[in-house]
Deep mutational scan, measured.
Amino acid sequence: MAAGGDHGSPDSYRSPLASRYASPEMCFVFSDRYKFRTWRQLWLWLAEAEQTLGLPITDEQIQEMKSNLENIDFKMAAEEEKRLRHDVMAHVHTFGHCCPKAAGIIHLGATSCYVGDNTDLIILRNALDLLLPKLARVISRLADFAKERASLPTLGFTHFQPAQLTTVGKRCCLWIQDLCMDLQNLKRVRDDLRFRGVKGTTGTQASFLQLFEGDDHKVEQLDKMVTEKAGFKRAFIITGQTYTRKVDIEVLSVLASLGASVHKICTDIRLLANLKEMEEPFEKQQIGSSAMPYKRNPMRSERCCSLARHLMTLVMDPLQTASVQWFERTLDDSANRRICLAEAFLTADTILNTLQNISEGLVVYPKVIERRIRQELPFMATENIIMAMVKAGGSRQDCHEKIRVLSQQAASVVKQEGGDNDLIERIQVDAYFSPIHSQLDHLLDPSSFTGRASQQVQRFLEEEVYPLLKPYESVMKVKAELCL
């Protein structure tokens, strides 16, 4: 049975990233139509530049190519590739079939990587351009969430054990800070992308030097003109047959890092959902379990974690691919890159769409948070109580021993009897502590235990987050809708 299948058929496997999760716009960027249309555009740009620099290419040939950029006979191309065992030459023939007058000058002087690699770089750039505003929107939604809850005390956790208090907004800023680093890295790697350009079979530009009869300047002009037509500021000066596969490492490393950030955020949300302090959106008709109707599973956060793990592992592909590119190139890269580049971007696209949807509907339960604080705060307040007693004339050592005994009794009630923490009640009825009984409410005010959390939130948002989001103001209103 021949390899390949009808990918629109229910009898043929289709990647869930495309069929179930990723956005239509990201799927289109990695589609065959987008790819092969870009090949034709690159052939047109090459012909236009070659004509401008004096090669015998007519206006009629150029116009014929322009008129057929979208006229792609995919069936013919597939048949040609089956016959020739070469995808680029299959599309040269297919393009030439609908451009008979231009057929002889299509791909003039070029090698397969002229269309293959340059198209990949265009796709990487455009895919990054799709991700950047999506990530900015996630940051914006979380920034709104953090600002609104900047002063809401909550129990902090280290080692997932109760620690000092923080605020809900401050905790959210930990998430935002990681995503801001990801946004900066995505922008950097996007701006650092260079075009492969017009380089020939081993990167020496020998074929173009021959076409222009040894004119170095025209060869350099050709490279520059096509690079500018493709919208790049610069091209690699040095290439082998391909652009260095280190570029793929750079791009997928940034995406993998984004995956790590999203995994951490969504894990926190899942843990908070278990504590009943916070939940992701839950639709009115949504079913959490087929057997347990009360369940409210954090399905979206779980999906993000599941896909983020996949995204983090994909960076190993370009690392290994770059390491086995012998001399000017081997074909070890080809099949692998067809999979890992598309999957990385479709996965990143999915987790950003999902995280935006989550961040637009996060639900906080202040009463649950308050109750958990009441359970733990008495123990945390013991040092403040000791200091207040010393100020009232008591002995630190005597007070410490009193607190120690009462704390152990209260802990026994919590752990052995399943009761509430009654340390404060014990202190309130103990005559030894009568000098500070009137101060206990103040000493137990949760806001006095959150330090500068709310001020940190305000400063972080104003100095770091809002300036970073400013270039994306025009796209901030787009909502994230999930079908599944």
Rank of each mutant, 00 (worst) to 15 (best):
residue 483 C to Y: 08
residue 166 T to D: 00
residue 296 R to E: 01
residue 33 R to M: 12
residue 177 Q to D: 03
residue 48 E to V: 05
residue 24 P to I: 14
residue 21 Y to Q: 02
residue 148 E to M: 08
residue 362 L to R: 05
residue 426 R to I: 06
residue 377 L to C: 03
residue 150 A to Y: 14
residue 98 C to F: 11
residue 167 T to E: 01
residue 26 M to Y: 07
residue 409 Q to D: 08
residue 360 E to M: 12
residue 371 R to E: 01
residue 75 K to G: 11
residue 319 L to Q: 00
residue 122 I to A: 03
residue 446 P to Y: 08
residue 102 A to L: 05
residue 210 Q to G: 11
residue 397 Q to R: 05
residue 389 M to Y: 04
residue 389 M to I: 10
residue 189 V to S: 10
residue 229 K to E: 05
residue 10 P to L: 14
residue 366 P to A: 06
residue 298 P to I: 07
residue 273 A to R: 00
residue 334 S to D: 03
residue 359 S to V: 09
residue 398 D to K: 12
residue 406 L to G: 07
residue 266 C to W: 06
residue 391 K to F: 01
residue 172 C to M: 06
residue 354 T to E: 03
residue 213 E to M: 15
residue 208 F to K: 03
residue 427 I to G: 07
residue 422 D to L: 06
residue 61 Q to I: 07
residue 293 P to S: 05
residue 303 R to K: 04
residue 28 F to Y: 12
residue 400 H to C: 04
residue 359 S to P: 12
residue 335 A to N: 04
residue 298 P to E: 00
residue 435 P to V: 06
residue 304 C to L: 15
residue 235 A to R: 08
residue 475 V to S: 13
residue 195 F to C: 11
residue 28 F to S: 08
residue 60 E to Q: 11
residue 122 I to N: 00
residue 408 Q to V: 08
residue 105 I to T: 12
residue 4 G to V: 15
residue 330 T to N: 05
residue 139 I to M: 10
residue 297 N to S: 00
residue 61 Q to D: 10
residue 349 D to N: 07
residue 297 N to H: 02
residue 451 G to D: 00
residue 95 F to M: 10
residue 50 E to A: 07
residue 372 R to D: 04
residue 183 L to H: 12
residue 252 L to A: 13
residue 243 Y to S: 15
residue 352 L to M: 15
residue 358 I to Y: 05
residue 279 E to T: 07
residue 193 L to C: 10
residue 118 N to Y: 03
residue 205 Q to K: 01
residue 246 K to S: 04
residue 246 K to M: 02
residue 114 Y to M: 03
residue 133 P to Q: 11
residue 47 A to R: 01
residue 155 L to E: 01
residue 249 I to C: 11
residue 442 H to P: 08
residue 170 K to E: 01
residue 230 A to S: 14
residue 283 E to Y: 08
residue 262 V to E: 00
residue 37 R to A: 15
residue 116 G to R: 01
residue 370 E to S: 09
residue 216 D to S: 12
residue 458 Q to V: 13
residue 175 W to S: 03
residue 149 R to H: 08
residue 210 Q to W: 05
residue 444 L to Y: 05
residue 119 T to W: 02
residue 339 I to K: 07
residue 82 K to P: 13
residue 370 E to R: 10
residue 114 Y to F: 10
residue 86 H to S: 01
residue 271 L to S: 05
residue 64 E to H: 08
residue 46 L to K: 02
residue 100 P to V: 10
residue 448 S to C: 13
residue 136 A to S: 14
residue 313 T to Y: 10
residue 159 H to K: 01
residue 51 Q to E: 04
residue 71 N to W: 10
residue 336 N to R: 03
residue 234 R to P: 09
residue 4 G to C: 15
residue 215 D to T: 06
residue 204 T to V: 09
residue 312 M to D: 09
residue 158 T to A: 00
residue 55 L to D: 02
residue 215 D to E: 11
residue 247 V to C: 11
residue 61 Q to A: 10
residue 413 V to A: 11
residue 67 S to E: 13
